[in-house]
Design a protein around this nucleic acid. Structure first.
Length: 296
DNA sequence: CATCGATGTTGAG
DNA sequence: TCAACCTCGATGG
């Protein structure tokens, strides 16, 4: 479920609380026991997010690759901080508070844990445990140990992630690929081999913000329009990573009663710009929302 | 309390 | 094209 911004935030949590210290790796559920044994006791030296995938590098050269899929989630607990760079630690001067934070497409604080480490809840595929913090992974689509070469191969299959690649190179690559595809732009934006990290919410919102017809073939779009899509995705992704929310309306301070999004999940409701009813259609097995007038 | 559907991807057919 | 993966909040009876 999470789109790219969440994965960057999760990687940030690992950098902040798990990097540089020995990590006990286990698989309470059992399904990942062999992989856990390969990593157990080593230190995490790097956490990297590329699109919707996260890669944790350990000090002996092996990596953990995780993709949350549609309902995977990380639960962090212990002496941890929640959220963005500017937020203060929850640890007080005295005993650390035992915060519990669930990170999936949404982030939510759960009631503090009573003892550390807490018992695993449900089917925990992998548990990463340090002296101060614990991370439990549940329901992922992918969770595997990789060599550095395998990591490189995984990343090579992915289109550019604006926060991971050189901005100019990423933009040029995206423009070049879109420019030769007959595929509807709505499908290209969701194609992780073309551009990394966009999911169904950001897809619909980016297309509306650009006032683009979702069915326009990539190669029929002017380069400038495609560049603007890249730049807007970069913009929205940055906001998402900093806030933990999928802000797409650029006016957080306007009325409290405003909808969260321009068109996503607003089929049958009036377009916020022109009043025409937003429509929904299945495309490539996913629901696509757009305004038939503003995005004609 | 049962059922549905989801911000995703893979792989079978 | 569609089921499977196997979680969990929202919805309805």
């Amino acid at each position: 479920m999470p789109e790219g911004h969440s994965v960057h935030r999760i990687a940030r949590q690992f950098e902040r609380h798990f990097q540089g210290v020995p990590v006990a790796v286990s698989s309470p559920q059992g399904r990942f026991a062999p992989g856990a044994a390969q990593l157990d006791g080593h230190r995490i030296v790097r956490a990297m997010a590329v699109g919707k995938q996260m890669f944790l590098e350990f000090d002996h050269g092996l990596w953990l690759r995780v993709h949350l899929g549609i309902y995977g989630a990380w639960d962090f607990a212990g002496d941890i901080t929640a959220g963005g760079t500017g937020e203060a630690s929850t640890a007080s001067i005295g005993a650390p508070r035992l915060t519990r934070l669930r990170m999936s497409e949404q982030e939510q604080l759960a009631p503090d844990i009573q003892s550390f480490p807490p018992e695993p809840i449900g089917a925990v595929r992998v548990r990463l445990l340090t002296e101060a913090a614990v991370a439990d992974l549940r329901g992922p689509t992918a969770c595997e140990v990789q060599t550095a070469d395998e990591v490189a191969a995984s990343i090579a299959k992915l289109g550019p992630d604006p926060l991971e690649v050189d901005a100019t190179e990423g933009e040029e690559q995206f423009v070049a690929v879109v420019g030769r595809k007959p595929t509807p732009i709505a499908l290209l934006l969701m194609d992780q081999a073309v551009l990394s990290g966009i999911g169904n919410v950001y897809r619909a919102e980016l297309l509306f913000r650009a006032r683009l017809n979702p069915f326009t073939p990539g190669r029929e779009l002017a380069d400038g329009v495609v560049r603007e899509l890249w730049r807007d995705w970069t913009h929205l992704l940055r906001i998402g990573v900093e806030t933990g929310r999928m802000y797409t309306m650029d006016d957080e301070d306007s009325g409290e009663e405003r909808p969260e999004h321009w068109v996503y999940k607003r089929d049958g409701l009036p377009c916020l710009v022109c009043g025409t009813n937003v429509v929904m259609e299945e495309l490539g097995g996913r629901k696509l929302y757009w305004c038939p007038v503003d995005q004609a």
